[in-house]
Simulated scan of single mutants.
Amino acid sequence: MQNEMLQATAKQDGKTVPMGSEKTDSRLLPAAEAAVKTPIHQHVYERLRKMILFGDLAPGQGVTIQGLTTALDAGMTPVREAIRRLTSEGALTHLGNRRVTVPELTHTGLEELGFMRETLEPELTRRAAERMTEGRLTALNDCDTALNHAIDRGDVGGYLMQNYNFHAMIYDLAEAPIMAATVDRLWLRFGPSLRVVCGRYGTSNLPDKHAELMAAFSAGNVTLAGEVMAGDVAQGMTQIRAALDGLPIPR
């Protein structure tokens, strides 16, 4: 008996064609693309979160829910959902009369945030240093270069965004998602106050330890990388404390 090759077939446009060679109906693509788009409520949440994180909503500044719907160009329902989520994260508080605000930092709150940051961020940095690659180091250097350009331009928003991105890239490399998520929430608590620091002292007067950190990463010195990050965190929190107290910027 001769062996026969069996070929699976399928019907398409009334014709029999080999299975696997069917053409995709282009009419289905828009629906498929729509399925992978970010849901509107998530998009609104992320936009409002960035407004808080980068100080577009100043601590203590009351804003109406209607005002947020206008600023975000979104409906009331997704805005309310975003407010609910961010309130649960401690990034917003209700004032009544359909108004919300970013909480102002207290000295006690600042001490707690400082303790948490100085505990978690150096550990994440050490873990990132153990996993550092040349490509990742280049990406970090590009981010820090963009940060320095923002400083030169006096671009407060650009500075705050690139500073956040620089730290977030490091913590993502640590492959410790629970700690990284915790730190990200901490940044949401003190991030708005960094805008106050920039407004009081200017971006050109804000020192950091990024160059030392990059050198430690390049040298593969895990311990030093953690120590430098601890110093960078302490320096940043001291700047916030000085701004809250109306003192000259510490060096």
Rank of each mutant, 00 (worst) to 15 (best):
Thr145Glu: 07
Pro78Val: 11
His94Phe: 02
Ala180Val: 00
Glu175Ile: 11
Arg200Asp: 07
Glu104Gln: 14
Asp172Phe: 12
Pro177Glu: 10
Leu124Pro: 11
Tyr164Thr: 13
Asn205Tyr: 06
Ala181Cys: 02
Glu118Gln: 10
Asn165Gly: 02
Gln162Tyr: 05
Thr93Tyr: 09
Arg131Ala: 15
His167Trp: 04
Met161Arg: 14
Trp187Lys: 13
Tyr171Ser: 03
Val100Ala: 01
Cys198Gly: 08
Ala139Glu: 06
Asp142Ile: 03
Val156Ser: 12
Leu110Pro: 03
Gly114Ile: 01
Arg200Ile: 04
Arg84Pro: 01
Asn148Val: 03
Trp187Pro: 05
Glu111Tyr: 03
Ala139Val: 00
Leu137Tyr: 12
Met116Gln: 05
Ala129Leu: 09
Asp142Gly: 00
Arg131Tyr: 09
Ser88Arg: 11
Pro103Gly: 15
Arg84Met: 14
Gly75Arg: 14
Trp187Phe: 14
Asp155Lys: 09
Leu120Phe: 11
Thr138Asp: 15
Gly75His: 13
Glu81Gln: 15
Asn205Cys: 01
Thr101Gln: 13
Ala176Met: 06
Pro78Thr: 13
Ala176Pro: 03
Glu134Met: 04
Val100Tyr: 01
His107Val: 14
Thr69Cys: 09
Leu86Pro: 01
Ser204Gly: 05
Pro103Gln: 15
Arg131Val: 08
Leu206Ala: 01
Pro192Cys: 10
Arg185His: 09
Met169Asp: 09
Met132Glu: 12
Leu173Asp: 14
Phe190Glu: 06
Tyr201Ala: 02
Val100Thr: 03
Thr138Tyr: 14
Leu147Gln: 06
Asn141Ser: 11
Leu124Val: 10
